[in-house]
Design a binder for these strands. Structure first.
Lengths: 112, 112
DNA sequence: TCTCATAGGGATAAAAAAGTCACTATTATG
DNA sequence: CATAATAGTGACTTTTTTATCCCTATGAGA
């Protein structure tokens, strides 16, 4: 579901908006991939494990609608499309590093 | 799904672990509630919108298994149960504040 | 001509998550 | 005696999310 839609339903909680916007199954892998720079859909397909085009497109579309990614379509043949992080997307990544650090704590904790 | 299970499937990515552990529909509301201190299930039910006991229990259980919450059961009648944040849970909350700030940016951005 | 690469989507199936309802058990209170 | 409050779960339905399959279209190269 699109983040704005969820925002409209409930009262708007920024944290829920944030979490929803990164909750899709392939969104974190997408972020890892795109952090290096622009990426074409086919590159995502090769870079991420067994994602299906269809599903990848859905997640990319949501992230685009949420303002995390930008999509550029070039009128070429074969067609070319490139995604990149928006400014807000880049700021998100900074927070994700911290969340990643916390995830490490969680993992270490489970080993005990 | 329990976080450890997901961790077992894929390669272990701390960030995915982290995001999964907060992705349940009622987990963020649970965090808001419990941040004030210990909370009984009935208090969550009253404090959070229309959650069902059943679903609330599921989410609490997952968060407990993930090491975010601790559960104490008192052998009383009527029965008393209290949840509280673990140390790791408290550290999570610190990161969530930042994610909350980012969520605000996202919301402001959508208004434009 | 056939195949591959490119990007995309409709129709549908499968899986996962969330929600509903009914029941357990005990004590205090009206 | 009936009702409310406490915590919990089995069986089931609904909703949401992911996945699968097959189609569109175009140009390059074997």
């Amino acid at each position: 579901m699109k983040t704005q839609e969820k925002a409209a339903e409930n009262k708007v909680c920024p944290l829920e908006i944030a979490v929803n916007s990164i909750s899709g199954k392939w969104k974190i892998p997408i972020v890892w991939q795109i952090y290096e720079g622009k990426k074409r859909p086919s590159e995502f397909l090769r870079g991420i494990g067994k994602v299906d085009r269809r599903v990848l497109n859905q997640q990319l579309k949501e992230m685009e609608q949420d303002g995390i990614l930008t999509k550029e379509s070039f009128n070429e043949l074969p067609p070319r499309v490139e995604y990149s992080l928006t400014d807000i997307g880049k700021k998100l990544v900074n927070v994700l590093w911290l969340l990643n650090d916390w995830g490490k704590l969680l993992i270490d904790n489970e080993k005990v």
